[in-house]
């Protein structure tokens, strides 16, 4: 549905995104993840025809954003980071106006409105002026305007920004409910959000695609495999040689401890806790604890952000063939 080919966007002399290259299929729910200033908003604004690329090509359903923005806008719903609300209008009037702007007939809007209000939880405030609404409700009205015309492509920039925990859960439910019906792109710097709502993640760092794929694929791409934390009694050198003899161990790091007590972080290609425990015990070293550390998206994110694109380049052997994790080739 969307093709982004070698797109670069400069604001003055500052590059916001550099040589971005990816593809999004019809019906996918894709999350753009990145720190502030990573280029998420710029990317989404390019896709919604608000900005033009400095170089490269963006096409949506084969239509070029540069030459056919008018056609593309017919099937796009966009929620910017600041919802585009007219404070003096009431919710129902505003959503009607948004529908009319998208060329909907009045009768079609009247039929559609109750559905939209229900999806966004706005039924109770339909007649209230927007300026009297709380931030969470405004955000919902923002989503309402984005979905009122039932667009094929829904683009949400930081949809949970500024919401409280209860509202975040509701928003997540709402996005889940919209999945399948629409192709959804959303951005966030909050990892758990993307993890829980999206099929696929595009991770941006300093304007470049740092990685893409599902959470599992990203973990694989990084080659971190498994991180095991353990504490054991015994001398450091003895423990080190035992650990390194365990097959699959990539890296052993000692973190503090005393002469006779060691705390170690071990990185392994796969989960080798059993063999590791066995080896330590059979070497007569007192094993006190051994646990696998969760490799959540969070950790992947931090590592990728630190390393930028070089992390991907350093572990080419771990990219499984055919998956979408091969950044730059998609």
């Amino acid at each position: 549905m969307i093709r982004v080919e070698h797109v670069t966007k400069y604001y003055g002399n500052t590059p916001a995104i550099r040589d971005l290259d990816f593809e999004i299929q019809e019906g996918e729910c894709v999350g753009f993840l990145g720190l502030n200033g990573a280029g998420k908003t710029t990317t989404l604004r390019l896709l919604s025809c608000l900005l033009l690329p400095t170089s490269g090509k963006v096409t949506v359903r084969g239509l070029d954003v540069e030459t056919d923005p008018h056609e593309i806008r017919k099937f796009i719903g966009f929620l910017p980071d600041q919802p585009p609300l007219y404070p003096e209008m009431n919710v129902a009037d505003y959503l009607t106006f948004a529908g009319r702007l998208r060329k909907m007939e009045n009768s079609a809007i009247q039929k559609r409105l109750p559905e939209v209000m229900d999806t966004c939880g706005l039924t109770d405030v339909a007649q209230q002026p927007i300026h009297s609404l709380s931030h969470g409700y405004r955000q919902r009205v923002g989503i309402g305007q984005a979905i009122v015309h039932d667009p094929d492509l829904l683009i949400l920039d930081e949809p949970i920004n500024g919401l409280d925990p209860v509202q975040i859960v509701e928003m997540r439910e709402m996005i889940r409910a919209l999945r399948g019906k629409h192709t959804i792109l959303l951005s966030s710097h909050i990892l758990s959000e993307i993890e829980q709502t999206c099929d696929r993640i595009l991770m941006l760092h300093q304007g470049q695609l740092a990685a893409q794929g599902t959470e599992a694929q990203l973990a694989e791409k990084l080659g971190t495999g498994v991180t095991i934390k353990l504490s054991a009694r015994g001398e450091r050198s003895a423990l080190q040689s035992v650990l390194q003899s365990v097959p699959g161990v990539v890296d052993v790091q000692f973190q503090g401890g005393t002469d006779s007590l060691q705390h170690v972080v071990v990185r392994t290609a796969e989960d080798v806790r059993e063999q590791m425990a066995k080896s330590i015990v059979s070497a007569d070293l007192g094993l006190l604890s051994l646990e696998r550390e969760a490799t959540g998206l969070e950790q992947i994110f931090v590592q990728l952000s630190k390393g930028g694109s070089q992390t991907g380049a350093a572990t080419p052997g771990h990219t499984s063939p055919g998956n979408a994790a091969a950044g730059g080739e998609a």
Partner: peptide, 9 residues
């Protein structure tokens, strides 16, 4: 609010 206008046909 211009975003609403500019993302509409």
């Amino acid at each position: 609010t211009q975003t609403l206008l500019f993302t509409s046909p």
